[in-house]
Design a protein around this nucleic acid. Structure first.
Lengths: 129, 129
DNA sequence: TAACTGTATTAGTATCCTTAGTACAGTTAA
DNA sequence: TTAACTGTACTAAGGATACTAATACAGTTA
């Protein structure tokens, strides 16, 4: 499904969370689409099912997926009201990172260009990579 | 000098790095200004000098301060050429965070407003808090 | 020389990550 | 109903990493 760096200092489950978030944000995985089961994905990547479950639980906490016992895990429809807490966190991160970027010599225009690129990468694609 | 949360899961030295970066970016601490010695600050905050040193080393690695054996640690003059590596890291973080913010419902205008606020908070202040 | 400064090394502790095994509960299709 | 799938919970163990502490060394300054 995607590549992981098992030798990275970054935990496997965190890498999984990031990968899935990226796929969901870019709508490669669409609303209500079924994710691979924890056991199936664990077998495919030869890692422990508990590690997958930990990633899925984190994704559920952050509001990106929902799970139904006996059925599976699915992509959550983005709901602005639900994710208010996550929005606050991102806003704080953005504020700090923007300050640092400006301090390191990045210009307002360059940051605005990043926003533009992000906007395009979100809606504007089909099933290609 | 500032508050730390000793019970936080976030390591003390990381909190120190963030605080100092903020002070340097906002120019509360100015170029070549002397930072408190590792032992003095450690005594003030009743934590181990090594923890302060670890924070200072990290700040030095990121190009925010420089240290001279026997003299002390001082705020580094921001040099766009030197910090290119840090700039790359920030750019990647910004790209991911902007995508997530947009997905969670933040608008381009709101993000641009954050940029504006960051610009104002950097240059526009004296010694007040 | 005395008192300050940063730095390096070692060691103990704590925490986190991953794996493994087991068990329970809900869903689905034969 | 049964079999095979799904998510979920729990415990235990091992290893790796991170954090903090204590000590010693080295340079600066008055």
């Amino acid at each position: 499904m995607f590549d992981l760096d098992l030798r990275s200092r970054k935990p496997i489950y965190e890498q999984l969370v990031e990968k899935f978030k990226e796929l969901i944000i870019k709508e490669v995985l669409q609303a209500d689409e079924k994710l691979p089961s924890v056991r199936t994905l664990a077998r495919q990547m030869t890692i422990n099912p508990n590690t997958i479950q930990k990633a899925y639980r984190e994704l559920e906490t952050q509001g990106y997926i929902y799970s139904v016992k006996g059925k599976g895990s699915f992509v959550q429809v983005s709901d602005d009201a639900v994710n208010q807490e996550e929005l606050m966190k991102i806003k704080e991160k953005l504020t700090a990172d923007i300050s640092e970027a400006l301090y390191l010599g990045m210009t307002r225009t360059e940051i605005e260009q990043l926003i533009k690129e992000a906007e395009e990468s979100i809606g504007g694609q089909k099933t290609n990579d």
